[in-house]
Design a protein around this nucleic acid. Sequence first.
RNA 1: GGGAGGUUAGCUCAGCGGUUAGAGCACCUGCCUUACACGCAGGGGGUCGCGGGUUCAAAUCCCUCACCUCCCACCA
Length: 885
Amino acid sequence: MSMDKRFDPKSYEGHWQQRWAEMGIFVCEAPSSRPSFCIMIPPPNVTGKLHMGHALQSTLQDLLVRWKRMQGYNALWLPGTDHAGIATQLMVERQLVREGTSRAALGREAFLERTWAWKKQYHGNIRRQLDLMGASCDWTRERFTLDEGLSMAVREAFVRLHAEGLITRGEYIVNWSPALGTAVSDLEVEMKPVRGKLYHIAYDVDGSGERIVVATTRPETMLGDTAVAFHPDDERYRHLIGKFAILPLVGRRLPFVADAKVEKDFGTGLVKVTPAHDAFDFELGRRHGLPILGVIGRDGKMTVAAGAQFAGLDREAARALVVETLRAEGRLVKVEEHEHNVGHSQRSGEPIEPLISTQWFCDVSGMAARALEAEKDGTLRLIPESWGKTWEHWLANIKPWCISRQLWWGHQIPAWFRRDGTFVVARSREEAVELAGTDELEQDPDVLDTWFSSALWPFSTLGWPEQTADLATFYPTNVLVTGFDILFFWVARMVMTGLHFTDRVPFSTVHLTGLVRDADGQKMSKTKGNVVDPESLIEEHGADALRFTLALLDAPGRDIPLDPERMAGYRAFGNKIWNAARFVLEPTAEAPAKVGNARVQSTLDVATLGLPERWILSRLSRTAAEVEQKFTDFRFDEACNQLYHFFWGELCDWYIEFCKPVFAGTVAEAERPRVGEVLLTVLDRALRLLHPVMPFLTEEIWQRLPGHEAIHPETICLAPFPTPVAEWESDEHEARMASVMELVTRVRALRTERKISAKTKTRLYLAGAGPLLETLRAQAPLVKALCRLEAIELGSPPAGAVLDSLAGVEFALVPEAGAKEAPAPVVAVLDGQLVQLRDEIARAEARLADESFVSKAPARVVEGNRARLAELRERYSRLAAGAGE
RNA sequence: GGGAGGUUAGCUCAGCGGUUAGAGCACCUGCCUUACACGCAGGGGGUCGCGGGUUCAAAUCCCUCACCUCCCACCA
């Protein structure tokens, strides 16, 4: 099976995804004798499209799962989707509007049918895109937040929380989104600075000639005012206690109340109090037992309670009319420009209207305390750790969670109302009828916040509340990979419900990723038009390149600037791997492959191997150790860097070059035995190390390695993840080889500096003494090949040769006599080097002359400096001698 | 108002107490050396935001300041 010269990821990626699915290798067992490892996918919107954030998170999740699977774990990556209440409902509603109809016209039942049809139509998209990414999900366990099992879990959770008194129904001030027609939670409100006005309005004090001035940014709410407040210590207003203000336009008498939450220094120090339309005023009103008077309706328009003059007007129009009327009455004292924060609906963008409404609330304070504790005592680990403070602060100040939504698409609240307005909470209608003692019941029309069902995701997907084998096997899960933007929306709530219902944290580690930004560090957004679609990147460069790029850029606590050029660079890495494999496996005239009849070895006795073989095996073992450690530490960026450097910088740049003279017969087989086996073994293990990041390419090549079946009969996905081999590691061999490589680099540099063309036949003279010279003598044929030399001579060079030195070895380059290009003495280059060397020598001398350094620094460091100084001096004298010629 | 993070090569970022600060891309020079031009070899480029301090030694630890991101927060 020869390899195509062209590196084309598309030619094999789809094929392997299909093959893996057919093999069923990602399907997990429960129960299992193997240790389990489990990751739950953060369920994407069922009708959505995967964006770069998903691509990043999927890459990291898949990397972890593939790694653990190769380590022999029963590794489950459970896929699924979210019904995404508001988002999906809005999409369907928009479609209806285009068809000239509406949600209201259809009615609840027909609308839900439409939405389910919509869901069915788009559902396959997510799987298709995850398949493109190479995701190794167990699709037999796929879940959807609205499927029967999860719905049962949702009802169970609701019933239990209600029984415990943690879920209650009540009238409270909520964040109302007039455009969406539903209440939303605090988290769904986004504060945005708005340039508004601060209106100063004069009120009369009843029964005295006194006039007071209140300041407000929302004059239209005055129609619902029920008090005027000031700070208890405010000398200016103390005398007003017991008195009443007359509300302009309305004439209502408003009591004065003193409250410590009022800021003395803002405005006039007097606050108009509208308990029905401001959270601050609502709380204040509660403390003082003030009446609540709603004047703005759910549609954002003024109600009849606002008075005949204003009823029916939009909020903005009412404001204008109120201001106009006040001005006409001479009560508008002053209008100032004023920038302040206004809550906006995250989903629809319009200003939130705080208003009183009957909703379901979940008291999460107890669960929050446990979630906070879990993070503090290390049961739950956040990565990066810096999120700990944010976590603690949010949970310590948590408020009741408004869990009901006035929508249709979602889990309908399992509460049934009797005719008299009382209700029962139950798991089903049957249970409700039994509890209520009547079948004249109507279920609460509202649905639950989408995040309520997502909060149960880690265990509801495994069958909870049933004690299933899956739950016993995979729960608690191990790692959660998600974006920090849903830390509160989702992560915190999963931890809370997990602790509450299962007494366990649902996952021990949360890896929070940054945001994927564009090449210029800008947030990707549709309006900016800089959104990069993962599918198009896969189309262009392949999934492996995308995965490698994302994993490599995932530095903790940082956003990820995705530069297509950089990604092209990692595609080139794939090309490099492809071609390295081609070199190794290329058929020759005599053999089926360059490596002859060699096969991948599962163990290798290194004792009889040559120096380059010892070197690469030692480097391989250390890379394996490093990669394993970095994966364990969630440093995918460093692991990938390591792999990149090993494969390209060591295996390709050096070791393959070391092999060429052997294959060419320039170096005797006897001196470098079993090169083919070593090369294949290194390639096999390197591919296995890379597999979690680049699954397709590694499988495609690995399948072609002679002898791979002995590692695993079917697939690299199940082949063991390489572990370090202590017997292969050798500082001594690494050091010896490193100095040979250093010499090769120096010789090449000299050649370039002296402009000795590659075609000019050149001799290298080596003289001196020491271990390096011995090594070089042994490796002479190799050095000759790597430096493209005509010959290597031992002994003093003829006069006039180019001289340098390294570790006790003097070396000189001598171009063939009569060569076309004379060795142009590049004086400038040499001078520059000499100056640099002199500076370095001076610095080293100064350091060593410093007594405190010599006495206080560790001996190791001092020794290192001494050795370096000696080396620098030697080099300097050689170069200076050369320059003097 | 609280909190987190950032400021290192032209760009995007690693490094976070030890000798000569790295990578990818970009740039310069020379090469199609039969695995790879998605390449090879060699090279240029940084007073590590400013100012102090601790230390034999500071991008690295501490403090001040400046500028940039982001999160949380009931000054109407």
